[in-house]
Design a protein around this nucleic acid. Structure first.
Length: 914
DNA sequence: TTGGTGCATGGAC
DNA sequence: GGTCCATGCACCA
């Protein structure tokens, strides 16, 4: 067929994917032959959308020179091609169009004559998957024909685009991103797609709505793999493509912010676009927004306003190489806000998700190399230079921007970020954003809480979310003070410019409509940060590349949550269990697995009463229930048999959401306190790792499963890891059987060796003490009173179970000492070891150890093993006396010497226990 | 003993 | 196989 005097024929081009963001067709072998090029040959067009081979997204000067031309509306000379209809549109508008090469008049696209308009642009109407292309030029000056209803790009459509994008441009989504959480990946995909759409500009003005529709791969009759574009909108469902490519029509053109970053390496070798030359420092956002969104179509406002999408930064050295994961994610609403306050121009540069290292105490934030080289001052010396960066609160920080050589490359870091990170209460997983304020070039640092992101996603799924709001994460970014990126975080409003606060408060943002989850979690996060600003033990979960920092309390909370989750287990419905008795314990056996009941929250009233609240699955209202009620997985107001006045969703909630939030927060605090307390209690009860080992090695497995003991203990060892050769780590796995008396394994030999040293040391110290006591009567009396008198309890500040039956105090002490308080890591040469427990004196220990071990063993029912171990020990000790002594003096000062420092030394093998 | 520094290492891409 | 980068870790003050 023909179009605008040009014959459209098929041309063998090889299998190429149309890079058109919306199209993405795989043009197998055949491309449409387009208009003749000045350099000879023909342009090649996607058989689906009509884009040029290199497509509209990536077209630039190269195409302007090589492909079709248009006539200047003033002088009639040829100007430029239709490629500008897509990517470069906003650049044209931004710069007032392109000067005609002949008459120098500014030639906006809309005013150009269209006699050479290439197909696929300027209102080309493509039907049936692009198998036919009509005359694109004829509608050039016509207003945008948009046959599709307005509205936002919905999630489903975007996801489809994501899939296409992923299939077509696998390199766009880095593996690290793919391996990330689904939410993150989805967001990244959306970012890329949205950027693509955005890049495509008005060329897709008719596509940004439901016209994006379903994009499915198919095989038409000609056998070509191609993409069909169908409207997903039910009310607009049509059997064939209904897509009208946007026509540039004067002021109605919408403009999207940011010049498109180039994703593809092939762009890099092309001559620079005339629209970019000399324009690096232009203030991008406000100008674009002014000319764009403010006067743009509602369609596209609706599309982009709420969406947090990553956009490649508009400038910087080597910007083209920036991975999408570093693209700053900004919502158009924030940009819109920018357009209303042009006192300063914020140029988002890049962002980075904080790793555990970044957020850790080391105070170094690893910068993506490309970002550092693109946006930070060039440095030649490893020492780098100090960099002043302002945070969102207006505080100015000075970081050392430096690098160190790394594999013939460089690793860039910002040093000294800890105070800033703490100031912003950031943790691993949160995101820091780097922007620049123009004029002045001041670097500013914003942040985005990871938890908030998740909450946003979560909130979007809440029934009481704002209707019509995008399902994308809401706006939670905290932008630099003094700029328009004021953000919406309540947390930071206090330090923000008042007018910015007002502005942000006026924004009906998604996260203003936060549900209970968010308030709860946010407050929680804040509370955690405040109460535990530092010195937290961290634990990594997941793979190395996806390390997530978990604070110890979080881990505890996770455990607690799991315990709570078990509470939620409900027997399978309508199934009677069979009762099985095992060792006097009755178990209910079910054929079917249990189901999870509905989660409820328990809150404690200040008056002391407890309440159970549950959220209706239909209306999301919270209803109060009796505390003892267990709910099925699904629960709605109609199931509220306990309060007939509130058994309808229409009935308002009993208390305000705010009040409920407060109660929940209080309940959360209580839960946290309980968590910490239970953790402390667990710490007190759990034997240390070496204690467990001592029990295992000395007493044998009957005392308890050493493997089990070591599990709890391992968490106390700072350097346990695979390959660790410390005494705890080298012990045999649980269930491998006890060590025989003749065992010469590493563990047993170490235990024996240390035990011997321990006893020798004890004997020596005992004699010293006794000599001292003989010299000093006063101290002797005191010691005697401690030993024999009633102050023993005070000396032993240990956790002693209150109900110890008829055991004497001494027995209890020995029990404590023997049953798991032996720390064989104690250093024989360290005088301070015995003093680590307040009130614990040598004499008290000595007194305690005078009880024959056999008696203790008998009383505790572990005699057999002890005898066996004793025999083993006796064989390696020099004298029977010593051996006997060793049996009696198990409770040495090492009982409580398991400090982390000792562990450390042990794990490094630096301890001298010989 | 602790914390900072400079570099090395290894996994992921 | 090269590059990036998160983290480890030896060394030092």
């Amino acid at each position: 067929m023909t179009g605008a005097g040009r014959e459209i024929i098929w041309s063998e081009m090889g299998s190429k994917i149309c890079m058109n963001a919306v199209c993405g067709s795989i043009n197998t072998h055949e491309w449409k032959k387009g208009w003749p090029l000045r350099s000879g040959g023909y342009a090649h067009l996607c058989h689906n959308c009509g884009s040029t081979y290199e497509n509209s997204v990536f077209c630039d000067t190269f195409h302007l020179e090589e492909t079709g031309w248009r006539d200047c509306s003033s002088c009639g000379k040829h100007l430029h091609c239709g490629c500008i209809a897509s990517k470069s549109l906003y650049e044209f508008l931004d710069y007032g169009g392109v000067g005609c090469t002949s008459c120098a008049s500014s030639s906006r696209v809309c005013s150009m004559r269209n006699d050479k308009t290439p197909n696929g642009f300027g209102g080309s109407k493509i039907n049936d998957g692009g198998s036919k292309i009509s005359n694109g030029g004829e509608s050039q000056s016509a207003p945008v024909e948009n046959k599709v209803a307005h509205g936002g790009v919905d999630e489903g459509r975007l996801l489809q685009l994501c899939k296409i994008m992923e299939a077509n441009e696998p390199n766009l989504l880095p593996q690290s991103q793919r391996a990330d959480t689904n939410a993150s990946l989805a967001q990244t995909k959306r970012d890329v797609v949205m950027h693509k759409i955005e890049e495509a500009g008005p060329g897709f003005s008719g596509l940004t709505q439901s016209s994006i529709g379903s994009l499915t791969f198919g095989k038409p009759d000609n056998g070509r793999t191609m993409l069909e574009v169908k409207d997903m909108h039910e009310s607009l469902a049509q059997p064939s493509l209904n897509m009208t490519l946007g026509t540039l029509s004067g002021s109605s053109n919408f403009v999207l912010p940011f010049t498109g970053g180039i994703l593809d390496g092939r762009e890099q070798n092309k001559p620079p676009s005339p629209f970019q030359q000399g324009q690096r420092s232009r203030p991008i956002l406000p100008k674009l927004l002014k000319s764009g969104i403010a006067g743009g179509s509602e369609t596209n406002r609706g599309v982009f306003t709420h969406i947090r999408m990553a956009r490649p930064p508009g400038e910087g050295r080597g910007k083209n190489q920036l991975l999408p994961r570093y693209w700053p994610r900004i919502t158009d609403r924030e940009l819109e806000q920018l357009s209303g306050d042009l006192k300063s121009t914020v140029v988002p540069l890049f962002e980075k998700v904080l790793s555990a290292s970044d957020a850790g105490r080391i105070g170094r934030l690893v910068l993506p190399k490309a970002c550092a080289e693109a946006y930070f001052p060039p440095i030649s010396q490893s020492e780098g230079l100090p960099l002043r960066i302002q945070d969102i609160k207006g505080n100015e920080w000075t970081f050392q921007f430096r690098f160190w050589p790394n594999n013939n490359s460089r690793m860039y870091v910002l040093e000294g970020v800890t105070p800033c990170i703490q100031s912003m209460q950031l943790r691993a997983g949160d995101t820091v954003t780097f922007s620049r304020i123009d004029p002045g070039g001041k670097l500013v640092m914003g942040f985005r809480k990871a938890s908030k992101d998740m909450q946003d996603t979560e909130t979007s799924a809440l029934p009481n979310g704002t209707p019509g709001e995008t399902s994308f994460p809401g706006v939670v970014e905290n932008f630099p003070a003094g700029s328009c990126y004021s953000g919406n975080s309540q947390t930071n409003k206090g330090s923000m410019d008042p007018h910015l606060i007002a502005a942000s408060e006026n924004l009906p943002l998604a996260d203003e409509d936060i549900g209970l989850h968010r308030c709860e979690s946010n407050g929680d996060s804040l509370q955690q940060s405040v109460s535990n600003p530092e010195k937290k033990r961290t634990r990594n979960i997941g793979t190395k590349s996806k390390r997530l920092l978990m604070h110890s309390e979080d881990v505890l909370e996770l455990r607690l949550t799991w315990e709570e989750a078990q509470d939620l287990l409900r027997p399978p419905p309508s199934v009677n269990p069979s009762i099985v008795t095992i060792e006097d314990h009755e178990f209910e056996e079910y054929d079917e697995p249990p189901v999870f009941g509905k989660r409820t929250i328990f809150i404690s009233r200040p008056s002391g009463g407890q309440e159970q609240w549950v959220q209706c699955d239909d209306c999301s209202k919270w209803r109060k229930l009796p505390v003892e009620v267990l709910l099925p997985p699904k629960w709605t107001c109609s199931d509220n048999a306990w309060d007939s006045s509130r058994c309808l969703c229409a009935v308002p909630e009993e208390i305000s959401l705010k009040e409920l939030e407060n109660l929940v927060r209080a309940s959360k605090d209580f839960k946290k306190r309980r968590t910490v307390e239970s953790h402390k209690a667990a710490q007190e009860c759990e034997p240390s790792g070496l204690d467990a080992l001592a029990c295992a090695a000395v007493l044998g497995e009957n005392v308890g499963d050493p493997g089990e003991s070591s599990v709890g203990a391992t968490t106390k060892h700072p350097r346990h890891r695979p390959g660790c050769t410390c005494i705890v780590c080298i012990q045999p796995p649980s269930g491998k059987g006890k060590h025989k008396s003749t065992c010469t394994c590493n563990v047993c030999m170490t235990v024996k060796r240390r035990f011997k040293t321990l006893m020798l040391r004890k004997k020596k110290r005992q004699s010293e003490r006794e000599a001292e006591a003989a010299l000093k009567d006063d101290s002797l009396h005191k010691d005697e009173s401690e030993t024999n008198g009633t102050s023993k309890d005070e000396l032993f500040h240990m956790h002693i179970p209150e109900n110890e039956g008829g055991q004497s105090k001494t027995q209890i002490e020995v029990a404590e000492a023997s049953a798991g308080k032996i720390d064989l890591n104690c250093h024989p040469n360290r005088e301070d070891m015995q003093l680590e427990v307040p009130g614990l004196t040598m004499m008290s220990l000595v007194q305690a150890t005078r009880l024959p071990l056999e008696d203790y063993v008998k009383q505790n029912g572990i005699k057999g093993l002890m005898y066996e171990q004793q025999a083993s020990l006796g064989s390696c000790l020099p004298t029977q006396d010593t051996g006997e002594e060793s049996g009696r003096h198990l409770s040495d000062e090492g009982c409580h010497a398991s400090t982390s420092s000792v562990w450390e030394r042990d794990s490094r093998g630096e301890g001298n226990y010989q």
